[in-house]
Amino acid sequence: MNEESSIEQILDTIGDKHARTVLASISREPSSAKELEERLDLSQPTIYRRLELLQEHDLIKDRTLVADDGNHYKEYTCNFNSTVISLDDDEYDIRIFREENLPDRFSSLWDELGAK
């Protein structure tokens, strides 16, 4: 989760029906916006708004690919494996679990322990 993203913003994002639909689709299969438009029967502006919102909160990532005709396009993938939303003492907490390689996980753990 981005440091700038508040818990309320994440909850609002995953609370949006179209954002959840887009996220579920790309979690099954990486897709371009055009593929999502065809598969989900949503308008292109709706797709792009939801992709932007999901990226803003670091829930998806993209990569640029080159089509056979030489044009560039982006393919979107889900950026996490699972998420847990908990409520404790009237406060929500969100934990997003990402698949990281071993050196990244070690660095994150080291940083969390306060070692620099």
Rank of each mutant, 00 (worst) to 15 (best):
P45I: 05
L36K: 12
D93V: 10
V22H: 06
Q55R: 14
E112C: 11
I47T: 09
D62Y: 13
D90E: 13
L23P: 03
D90Q: 09
T13M: 09
D89Q: 05
D41M: 11
Y92D: 13
S32E: 02
A24W: 08
L36P: 01
P45V: 02
D90F: 12
A115F: 12
I47S: 08
E38M: 09
F80Q: 01
K116M: 05
Q55S: 12
E91C: 00
L23T: 04
E38V: 07
R63L: 08
M1F: 09
E52G: 13
A33S: 02
F97N: 13
D16I: 04
D111C: 08
S27Q: 01
R105T: 09
E37W: 04
T13D: 04
S108V: 01
G70M: 03
D62Q: 12
E56W: 08
K17F: 15
E3P: 01
I85T: 11
S27E: 06
Q44M: 10
I60T: 10
I10E: 00
D69T: 11
A67P: 01
L11T: 12
E100R: 15
R98S: 03
A19P: 08
S108R: 14
L42D: 02
D41Y: 12
L40R: 00
F97E: 13
R50D: 03
R95D: 06
D88S: 10
V66L: 02
L59D: 00
P45S: 01
E112T: 09
S86Y: 09
I14K: 04
D68G: 13
T46K: 09
Y76C: 04
Y73V: 03
N2E: 11
A115K: 14
I85F: 07
T21C: 12
S32D: 04
I10Y: 07
D88G: 10
L36Q: 01
Y76F: 14
A19V: 04
D88T: 14
G70V: 04
N2K: 15
D89N: 13
R49S: 02
E29G: 07
L23R: 04
I47V: 13
E91R: 13
D68R: 15
D90P: 00
D111P: 02
S27I: 06
L59R: 03
A115N: 07
R39V: 04
E100D: 15
E8S: 06
L113I: 00
S43C: 03
S6K: 05
L59E: 00
D58L: 10
I14R: 00
N79Y: 09
E100F: 14
S5N: 05
K17Y: 14
K74A: 05
V22W: 01
L11H: 14
D90I: 08
F97L: 11
I14V: 12
I14G: 07
S32K: 02
H72S: 11
N101L: 01
L87F: 12
